[in-house]
Design a protein around this nucleic acid. Structure first.
Lengths: 358, 358
DNA sequence: ATCATTTTTGGGAGCGCTCTCATAAATCAT
DNA sequence: ATGATTTATGAGAGCGCTCCCAAAAATGAT
């Protein structure tokens, strides 16, 4: 028992396979009486539709894949991804979708995973974390038969569907805040230099500076890779040049950088002020609370799933784009006492009507 | 093109569907010449087997599910789970398995997810994170048709397959270390009180104390829930009773507790010593490096997948058990200078030959 | 050569479902 | 009642693969 198929239920209920199928799938073309009878049989005997058979017949699997390419190896060190994954997972639950997770660890993994992703009858669509420019996986997926939504602006935007937060304006806002507070030697710790995320945040920084008529001192800019340790190391390099404020492109790096500052016996924000990026939960529990750009990570995941579903159902003909707004959250590390909190909101666009990247 | 099926390849190669299937599945019953010819056709024209059709015909999906029940809601706040997920994901890659992630957010999710998990032709097996005792999801999965391996000792062990680390002896070791260092007022911050994990670690603590002939002072024990904030709050409660050492059941709680200690103007480890549990990456980058029990999290995930595969292939007749050893990593927060590092190793057992839980 | 064996290949019957189309039953109008 | 409509149900043909079994080809033994 318990391994009954449609046919068995049909026999028990004295109806045809088709009718049971209709009941199971909530088709309106069943009389109330029949529906009730069949439902009772199912209730009593237990029936679980066979997913494989259903997928084969309907050409729909109700599964989507979340793919994290190799270049994003710092995956589960950074709390960003788990949070994103959670957002995506919850959104999937709401849409009766099953989420498959593909973490690419190394080249071998990539070779193994790619054909698995491309199998037909496996996934209805793919959420692909944007990674490096020379990403072979990226190209193969983009040119595959299934809808792919890229998470984060990809290098090659031409006709690819993607969703991102407005990194440029977020970074600009963060930097402008520092400028308006009167800091004179504002530095930046970048993320992985080859990621579009870092490139965009850098652009925002530059925009803010130049609009304020400030020179950018290259010795006040250090390269990181989004990790805590890279922030620490970057700050050590910056310290001799006496910055009085730092825009760190991630909270985690900000934390590492602040560690370096404190080890040097300096005070935050008196000697060095900070603005981070992400607004991770820790940002507000730190001894000195971190001023940072709030990313709507969970919301981002939800929107991504919505968009992908839309692509699955309505096609990807005009490339889909969505840029989400961020919010600067002012706490203690930036010093001063100015307040300015734009509201969070999403902006949806289609076609080439693109808002963000400079 | 590119959406060819077995039949099409067969026609192009001038052989039968069966033969192509054999080539694709590496069956030895194909002549070298034919194999080469078919492979070439596939190479040139592209062929991706249809997963649904394959699953339907073979009764094997090559997918496993990782299920995180609702009671473990602190899921992606705690770095433990992401790391575990990564371990599981990598192990899946190595076994050509696809991983589906089921995060249960609330009761609604649970109702939605359960039937999805139970569908036939969906999953070959399930990895289920152990949660609360009154877990309805747990019962439904355990009594389902598919192999379920529980991650962490479940409440009801009778004939359920599970894998866990040896929490009792790990906690005992940590506590004994504190005792041997001469601390007199040793306290403990527990994890979520209804989890077996916390229960086992508590048992280890008690064992160590009683074997050393120490009384346990209930006012030196505070309840947490594995979160940073709960550690902070617990420590605030403990401080008035002047403990000189704390065994925190998780690193994250230790971090919270140390924050409380420092806010109180006390010094670590001079005034209060600490031993944590998990050995998260942060443990070794903290200003005062954390002495803690190293959990082989990634290894745990790998072993879990191995065991589950074993269950899928050979059945679950004698219930499978596996208990992994841990390692005490001595750093700065415990004070003293004693050293003792047992090696990491796994111990596999079957049937009722159970090692750990007291 | 001839027959027994082994290796290679093809054919066909499902796997359990969906979905279209045709038929049967019920409803309505006249 | 009778035919026209609407609604409910059933039958059948796939979906694309695997896997068993039988046929054919190749190999070996005598």
């Amino acid at each position: 028992m318990d391994n009954l198929k449609l046919e068995d239920i049909a026999k028990l209920a004295g109806v045809s396979r088709s009718t049971v199928s209709r009941v199971v799938n909530d088709s309106p073309h069943v009389s109330a009486a029949t529906r009730k009878r069949v439902e009772k049989i199912i209730q009593n005997n237990g029936y679980h539709p066979n997913a494989a058979a259903r997928s084969l017949a309907s050409q729909r699997t109700n599964m989507i894949g979340l793919v994290i390419p190799r270049s994003t190896s710092a995956f589960f060190t950074d709390p960003y991804f788990p949070q994103l994954t959670q957002g995506v997972a919850f959104a999937c639950n709401n849409h009766h979708l099953t989420l498959s997770l593909f973490l690419v660890g190394n080249q071998e993994d990539e070779n193994e995973i790619t054909p698995r992703l491309l199998r037909r009858g496996m996934l209805d669509g793919i959420l692909l974390q944007s990674g490096n420019s020379d990403d072979n996986l990226f190209r193969r997926l983009i040119s595959s038969h299934l809808p792919v939504l890229v998470l984060g602006r990809p290098f090659e935007e031409k006709s690819v569907n993607y969703i991102d937060v407005d990194n440029v304006s977020a970074a600009k806002q963060a930097t402008t805040h520092l400028i308006s507070l009167g800091y004179q030697r504002i530095g930046m710790i970048t993320g992985a230099i080859h990621s579009t995320t870092s490139i965009d945040r850098q652009a925002g920084f530059v925009q803010a500076m130049s609009e304020a008529g400030r020179e950018i001192d290259p010795s006040l800019i250090a390269e990181g890779d989004f990790s805590e340790n890279s922030g620490y190391i970057a700050m050590k390099k910056l310290l001799p040049f006496r910055p009085d404020a730092i825009f760190a492109q991630s909270d985690v790096m900000a934390i590492g950088a602040m560690r370096a500052v404190q080890e040097a016996g300096l005070e935050i924000p008196k000697d060095v002020a900070f603005v981070g990026f992400d607004d991770l939960p820790v940002a507000s529990t730190l001894p000195i609370k971190l001023t940072t750009v709030h990313q709507p990570i969970t919301h981002f995941g939800i929107k991504a799933v919505d968009l992908l579903i839309d692509m699955i159902e309505k096609g990807t003909k005009p490339a889909k784009r969505m840029i989400l707004d961020t919010e600067l959250v002012i706490r203690d590390t930036c010093g001063g006492k100015s307040v300015s909190r734009p509201t969070v909101q999403g902006t949806e666009m289609e076609g080439s009507a693109l808002k963000a990247p400079a």
